[in-house]
Write a protein that binds this DNA or RNA. Structure first.
Lengths: 163, 163
DNA sequence: TCATACTTGATCGAATTAGTCAGGTATGCT
DNA sequence: AGCATACCTGACTAATTCGATCAAGTATGA
């Protein structure tokens, strides 16, 4: 299980947009340079984000992209759904289609685990909003910590300080 | 993000073994028939489970496989690590190797989210044990619900629930 | 009207997944 | 001992998904 390159790139692009002053925009070209992602790929990502209603675009010369709503109103879960279609694919959906019957029979003890796992992952990502990723202070993740409080008792999140 | 076929098959095989009477074994052939998974694939899975210390094997005619320890002592997290090597791959590990530098710079707000997500997924799967999957659905569901409840409220799990 | 910037969809190599295949080795039963 | 049963090992491969790239547009503002 992992975060794909697509989600990672999309997140970085969204964080860039979230750091803009109100009214400002960033062109796809600029985003490509800033994040070191090819122009074509940036275009594709922005397109999906726009269709998902997460970014707004201004066309023409001096045009560009900006967030479609407040960064506090955009969750990573939404972002993932916008670029990948879904956050977590259910096992039973995947392995039983058409002529095949779901291998999880009645009285199945396995299915609830995958369901619950999916709900948990989605619940987590839906509660992490973009504004939490743009601030350098440890105040980020307050909502996240509330969601999974006591999971780790030693304290708050340390932001990355490497290199 | 999804559960792979490998993990799904492995889980079903382990649940079969968990439902055996103490001392009993199931041959790879039998498991293959019961779960409708090819004999070769079952062999491969059982081999990985054995190397991970989750199943024990008895060789020779009338031999077979059984759990290496109590089903209450085997978690799905362990199972996943045994068959796939890891539960959740870190983004920074994947996208920054050798000559490439991690794109998550200092004061990165993104990395902690992926780290936390990974910890959560692993924490969840490490606490779901095989014995919780061998019972009819309502009880298994109750067990996973209990996990979430404990997870949110106390950060720890009750393993010795009365029947 | 033209440069800039966004839009769309097809394509494609690389990596991963999902399983197969071939050829062993160990054990228990007769 | 002989041999059938069953486990063990690792290489191999087809299918799918990932991670982009590419080509050919359309819309807008100066």
């Amino acid at each position: 299980m992992r975060i794909t390159s697509l989600v990672e790139c999309s997140t970085r692009i969204m964080v860039r947009l979230a750091s803009l002053q109100p009214g400002a925009t960033l062109s796809a070209e600029k985003l490509s340079d800033l994040e070191n992602v090819s122009r074509d790929y940036v275009d594709q990502i922005l397109q999906r984000l726009r269709k998902g209603g997460l970014v707004a675009s201004t066309r023409g010369a001096q045009g560009g992209y900006s967030l479609a709503k407040a960064s506090s109103a955009i969750s990573i879960g939404e972002l993932v759904r916008a670029v990948e279609g879904q956050v977590f694919e259910e096992v039973c959906e995947r392995y039983s289609s058409g002529e095949h019957e779901c291998r999880h029979m009645s009285n199945c003890g396995i299915r609830p685990v995958w369901l619950r796992l999916g709900e948990m992952i989605e619940g987590f990502l839906d509660k992490v909003t973009l504004d939490q990723l743009t601030v350098p202070e440890p105040r980020a993740f307050a909502a996240t910590m509330a969601f999974i409080k006591d999971f780790e008792k030693e304290g708050r999140i340390q932001h990355d300080k490497r290199r």
